[in-house]
Nucleic acid binder design. Structure first.
Lengths: 203, 203
DNA sequence: TGTCAATAGCGAATGTCATTCGTTCAAAAA
DNA sequence: TTTTTGAACGAATGACATTCGCTATTGACA
């Protein structure tokens, strides 16, 4: 009832935040700057979002879903299993986790500065895990579900690790070694129908 | 020359910071609180440390070295290679990365809030990498140096990933799957002298 | 078509921090 | 002793996220 929130204003705030996060990072972006860029009052931002944390997540969430969806298409368009795996790992760890536009930095800075009052919903994490498990299942139909889980978990863990390092943006701390390491660790699964390791308690 | 800095004061600040970081986390701990707890003036803290970042790192660094050293001893005391690998991965990822005292949260929050003016020195990271590579070399003498690198990089990446998630402290986001996944991925290296994967570009 | 009540929108606070300033005073060097 | 350097300190500064009190709009209802 009464005066409704404007979808335009909401989107303007998200767009402004998105652009500023890319330019300066989440921490260095102020609510005042977001409001100015969005053409509204600083205090009005709080009519649309509960907190800066909220904005950060609202910006990252659709970006991440978009990227993962694109990756699914890309992986789907490759036929050779070895190339598919390479595309998946490379795309996830290089293309998304160490994405140069800085969206991943947003995620890290958002997650690292959660306050108890911020409500973190792991739904995006679960959704992403699901997509990756599915892609891995497609690439390695011979492996067991437990093995799919193992590879999925390891990939997501690496994703988070690379994201954290990305935040440092130091030449000395390159991601390349880590990425090729994960690729190497996963490769053996391509070569067998029933891999040696059935230890997987993951599930 | 002139009045020298007091090692006592410096240590008091570090101790106070250490305790408060464990209790409330890095972000939620204020310089004022550290000073009060250390029995000195807030401004005097800046005589001993350049910034809050500096303090965070000065607290984390010796803790991490201690933990890694303990892990080396623990791994060294185990004889069976399979148990050694298990001890290493479990100790690194469970014992250190998801350490409940909150030191890892300190690391994550410190790294995630670096400002350009903060001088991050990757020396601790390099030192840790070196120790882990050495342990892996001991456990898998049959593997090539390139393979040692691969496993080291993958382990450190997982370490960072688990540390980031640890910061969320949510039941839904457990580390166990990720840890056992890494263990599973590494196990095959125990069973062969010359593993299939020689793809390792890492080095 | 007019009135009411809810609430978007806004400018000016608040409150919390890290960090800096200006001054004082202890101790090393002369 | 005297001088000089810099530790110690209380009081600013300057950034921010977030809240407050008020005004203006707009949907619902008469």
């Amino acid at each position: 009832m009464a005066r409704p929130k404007s979808e335009q204003v909401r989107q303007a705030i998200l767009d402004a935040a998105h652009q500023l996060f890319m330019e300066k990072g989440y921490t260095a972006t102020t609510i005042g700057a977001i409001a100015r860029q969005a053409g509204t009052a600083q205090s009005n931002v709080y009519v649309y979002f509960q907190s800066k944390f909220d904005i950060g997540f609202a910006v990252f969430d659709p970006w991440m879903r978009q990227k993962v969806t694109e990756l699914e298409e890309k992986v789907g368009s490759v036929s050779d299993p070895q190339d598919r795996l390479h595309t998946l790992v490379e795309g996830l760890l290089h293309g998304i986790a160490s994405d140069p536009s800085g969206q991943t930095m947003t995620l890290v800075q958002v997650l690292a500065t959660v306050k108890p009052s911020d409500e973190y919903d792991p739904e995006l994490l679960m959704w992403t895990l699901e997509r990756i498990r599915e892609m891995i299942g497609d690439i390695l139909p011979g492996a067991s579900p437990a093995e799919h889980d193992v590879l999925t978990q390891a990939l997501m863990l690496s994703f988070d690790g690379i994201a954290l390092r990305q935040n440092l943006r130091r030449e000395e701390v390159s991601d390349d070694h880590g990425i090729s390491a994960m690729l190497t660790l996963m490769k053996p699964y391509l070569d067998r129908e029933k891999p040696a390791a059935k230890v997987a308690e993951a599930g």
